[in-house]
Write a protein that binds this DNA or RNA. Structure first.
Length: 578
RNA sequence: GGUCCCGUAGCUCAACUGGAUAGAGCAACUGACUUCUAAUCAGUAGGUUCCAGGUUCGAAUCCUGGCGGGAUCGCCA
């Protein structure tokens, strides 16, 4: 399906047919669309990679390979250029056949097999269940979700997972904060002391607690009500978070509770697994260099020898009082995930960058020593409103939530804007630009292209009575009329799609899909506007049903591609945009 | 101070994981709306890819050392 992979194979078999002596390494050989159109349709570096191994000059070798390719009916011409590039020019017939191929594949067009059914677990969001999701979580949610969809499309068996941090002291804080709102609901005057969560999203939780518990909790001592309220409030927060995610179009396959690890022996089991490898010991850590912790005192703790696997210092898994640190259940959690999946991917916020090495170390130590965990860091989001940065602060409760974002600009825009950026680059999110339905906003550009195609398909039967525009008819149409440069350029762009899927999936970089779609939309708009000046190049030719059908097939193939790409990103392909 | 990420046109970002003359959008300038929806298109101009070395046929990309920005650094999660 990926034509560049096809031609790479073609070139390599031509190379093989030359019976060159010795073992030839071809791993570095690539076949790709050249940047410069004058370099043909497919550029291959085979001669440069192999020349030294066989003791020939790259250009001579290239000429020899070229001679073996000229008989291929898909290839019009082969040129040797520059230091030894092999530039293939493909025939019109071959390009035209790509349109039918795309239409026949339909919603599967671009699907790859590189996943080969391997189980991959993508863990993302995993926000503490202490409040609504905010902008930072949103980026992680969108990124993780698009990556999961991308991997699914590339043939992986994907699990979307959320790790609920409900085992630490922050859920106690949540419980105390919710308890205050419960008292408030009973008419008591409350004071939210420092360290508790002030957000008014807890007000309805307090009211619901009043309905649910009546006044029974009012007279209890804290050790009595705390576990009850903790349970109740955590569940309420998860309901809130699930609803937020649903509005963004994110649906998890699995929620995994940290708390569920305690008391089951799973943590002990994971630690024993490390201990068996001699990686657990009692010790005292050195203070961090250069920084002077005021209250530093040496303490003996149970440590994990993460330095064995590339970490900078060993990490504590038990506090000095003997209870587990946050890291311990996390190790157990990953131990569990490693048993459920072949590959793990974690989406972390930039503030967790310090945990990357120790987490990877733990996974290597728990497995067979290979690196089965990839951690993608998502950088911070800066919000801009009216040209000024909008500062958020947890203390004052001044933060922009995921819900705010969606209500103001909509899920499609939020998702596309956040995906039109590499995950490891900081993101400026400008409300004003996001709201602007214009060229400055890539979402509309792509959606407009899709809508334009839908419009042409709606209009064609009005102008040519009885014209069939269904996919099956278009896929079997005679496409020999597609010969204009702009038409061939669009076909070539469409034919690149499977290749981008493969590359984006291997690199774990969904932003490549977004950029490709923008590029593809540009080719479509370009073709459309050629028809503005030259009426003979419009999609619909009232006196030529055959040509019209061919052109509709082409643009429909483009729409299918856009739609497949947008589905990965979780953005709606619009039928019309009035 | 350690670690991780980033540094590309005036601005916001790409660059197919080492490929040929580094590309788009915005802003500036020139042109195309009795339209298959101008939410669009065609063109002009804009660069020492932070700096200095190194690796090779070939570097924005890889390695080393600087400079600048951000994040983070033992019983918080």
């Amino acid at each position: 399906m990926d034509i560049f992979a096809e031609f790479r194979a073609t070139v390599l078999s031509a190379l093989e047919a030359m019976d060159l002596p010795g073992e030839i390494k071809t791993a570095g050989v690539s076949a790709e669309p050249p940047r410069d159109a004058s370099h043909g349709d497919v550029a291959c570096n085979v001669a440069m990679v192999v020349a030294k191994q066989v003791g020939q000059k790259p250009r001579d070798l290239a000429e020899a390979i070229a001679a073996k390719l000229t008989d291929d009916p898909r290839i019009d011409a082969v040129e040797v250029a520059g230091p030894g590039f092999l530039n293939l020019r493909l025939s019109k017939e071959f390009w035209q056949s790509r349109v039918s191929a795309a239409l026949k594949a339909g919603a599967d067009f671009g699907k790859a097999e590189i996943g080969a059914g391997k189980r991959v677990n993508v863990e993302y969001v995993s926000a503490n269940p202490t409040g609504p999701l905010h902008v930072g979580h949103t980026r992680g949610a969108v990124f993780g979700d698009a990556l999961a969809s991308l991997l699914e499309f590339a043939g992986y068996d994907v699990t979307r997972e959320y790790y609920i941090n409900d085992g630490g002291s922050q859920v106690d804080t949540l419980a105390r904060s919710a308890m205050l709102r419960y008292r408030e609901a009973h008419g008591q005057a409350i004071e939210i002391v420092d360290g508790l969560y002030p957000g008014d999203y807890l007000v309805p939780v307090g009211q619901n607690m009043k309905e649910h518990f009546g006044d029974s909790l009012l007279t209890q001592a804290e050790e009595e009500w705390l576990p009850v309220v903790r349970e109740y409030a955590t569940e309420a927060m998860m309901d809130l978070i699930r609803a937020d995610l649903a509005d963004l179009g994110v649906v998890m396959d699995q929620f995994f509770s940290e708390k569920s690890l305690y008391g089951t022996g799973l943590i002990e089991e994971a630690v024993t697994a490390l201990d068996d490898k001699g990686l657990i010991y009692q010790g005292v850590l050195e203070p961090p260099k250069g920084k002077k912790p005021e209250d530093w005192e040496p303490r003996e703790q149970t440590l994990f020898k993460s330095t064995e696997y590339g970490d900078d210092v060993d990490r504590p898994i038990k506090k000095s009082d003997g209870s587990w640190t946050y890291f311990a259940p996390d190790i157990a959690y990953h131990y569990n995930k490693l048993q459920r999946a072949d590959e793990l991917i974690n989406i972390f916020g930039a503030d967790h960058s310090g945990y990357v090495k120790r987490m990877k170390a733990a996974c290597k130590a728990l497995g067979d020593g290979t690196d089965r965990l990839d951690i993608k860091l998502v950088q911070l989001v800066k919000l801009f409103k009216n040209g000024e940065e909008f500062k958020m602060s947890k203390r004052s409760g001044m933060f922009v939530t995921l819900r705010d974002l969606i209500e103001e600009v909509g899920s499609d825009v939020v998702r596309f804007v956040m995906l039109t950026r590499k995950n490891d680059a900081p993101l400026d999110f400008d409300f004003d630009k996001a709201l602007e339905q214009s060229k400055d906003n890539a979402v509309y550009y792509v959606q407009y292209a899709h809508a334009r195609i839908c419009s042409a398909l709606r209009k064609a039967p009005e102008e040519l009575a009885g014209l069939a525009t269904d996919d099956a008819t278009l896929a079997d149409a005679d496409l020999s009329g597609l010969t204009h440069d702009s038409e061939l350029a669009l076909i070539a762009k469409i034919a690149e799609w499977p290749r981008h899927v493969g590359q984006a999936a291997t690199a774990h970089e969904p932003h490549r899909v977004a950029f490709y779609l923008y590029d593809l939309a540009g080719s479509l708009h370009g073709l459309y506007n050629v028809g503005q000046r030259d009426v003979g190049l419009r999609f619909i030719q009232a006196d030529d049903p055959a040509l019209t059908t061919a052109r509709l097939a082409l643009v429909r193939a483009c729409a299918v591609t856009i739609s497949n790409g947008l589905r990965i990103l979780g953005v709606t392909p619009m039928q019309e945009m009035r």
